[in-house]
Simulated assay, not measured.
Amino acid sequence: MTSPLDASGANFPCKGYLSDASGKESVASWSAGSTQTITLEGSAIHNGGSCQLSISEDGGSSWKVIKSFMGNCPASTSGVSMSVTIPSDVKSGDVVFAWTWNNNTGNREMYMNCAIVTIENGGAGLSSYPDMFVAQLSNINSCTVPEGVDVEYPNPGTQVERVEGKLGAPVGDCGSSSGGGGAAPPATTSPPATTAPPATTAPATTPPATTVAPPATTAPSTGACPEGLVRCDSESSWSMCGSGYWQSMGAVPGGMVCRDGAIVAARKRALQSHRRNWNSRAL
């Protein structure tokens, strides 16, 4: 999925794909208690934000958080690997696994990618785990994440990776998100934002990774635009045309400005081509 959920929440969860009559086959088998690697691919990360990994045991009616990444998520434009321990409590059988993202800059939106996986050797269920954090969906609640903030989840659970620097609280009615923490491993603190992103290749003994793609923010547009074209929203912010629509890319890099449809050195006016290849894989 290369776009956010509808602002009203009308297609929450999973952009409505769980209602499809076909295309809902399991894509992986995971043993409860095992460690799995999720790989993010894409190009518009909007200065990071915060992400959660969640599981629904009831076909998408309820969602329980199994790991939270607070701050600098995603950390780079492609090949970011996220490790998670699948709780020993999760029920056996087919469940819906989800990656959700609350971006730092750009339109105030919520993103969600889903995949059906089969759990083996499971337990009694995740009823005691905290609820998925939901924001920016007007028909569900009034919860919002201010722009420029990596949201600090009210109840992130016990598997946590945290990067300080831009963390801040959400605003409004953000739902319960207040269940217990389950029996997941204790929280960990991730490296500072300047640390290189983790390797994209898992060890040979690790089961195949499930891939989900961080979608691009879709800015309002009056019509299709040429693919890869750069638009200067101001000297310090820019957008790029992707899939026929303007995608907000946030702030320009340090020491650069956006002028005449190009990213150039702050003290120079020479035009410079600045195109990106879009590469995402969605369920």
Results as ranks from 00 to 15, higher is better:
residue 219 A to I: 00
residue 271 L to R: 15
residue 44 A to C: 05
residue 143 C to M: 02
residue 125 G to D: 09
residue 140 I to D: 09
residue 128 S to V: 09
residue 92 S to N: 08
residue 262 A to G: 14
residue 26 S to I: 01
residue 163 V to C: 03
residue 277 N to H: 13
residue 135 A to S: 14
residue 218 T to L: 11
residue 35 T to P: 01
residue 173 D to T: 03
residue 203 P to Y: 03
residue 46 H to E: 08
residue 63 W to E: 07
residue 272 Q to L: 12
residue 258 C to E: 12
residue 26 S to H: 07
residue 166 K to Q: 09
residue 143 C to H: 01
residue 102 N to T: 02
residue 109 E to W: 06
residue 51 C to T: 06
residue 54 S to L: 04
residue 147 E to C: 00
residue 179 G to K: 00
residue 250 G to V: 09
residue 119 I to M: 07
residue 277 N to D: 13
residue 139 N to D: 15
residue 218 T to W: 02
residue 264 V to Y: 10
residue 71 G to S: 06
residue 29 S to D: 14
residue 208 P to G: 08
residue 127 S to T: 13
residue 242 G to K: 15
residue 235 E to Q: 13
residue 253 P to C: 12
residue 224 A to C: 06
residue 66 I to K: 06
residue 208 P to H: 04
residue 269 R to H: 05
residue 47 N to G: 12
residue 270 A to Q: 13
residue 130 P to E: 09
residue 130 P to I: 01
residue 107 N to K: 08
residue 52 Q to P: 05
residue 74 P to C: 09
residue 152 E to P: 00
residue 1 M to K: 08
residue 50 S to E: 01
residue 191 P to A: 15
residue 19 S to C: 05
residue 261 G to Q: 12
residue 36 Q to C: 08
residue 192 P to A: 15
residue 242 G to L: 04
residue 127 S to Y: 01
residue 85 T to N: 14
residue 4 P to K: 11
residue 128 S to I: 01
residue 120 E to I: 06
residue 179 G to P: 01
residue 47 N to I: 02
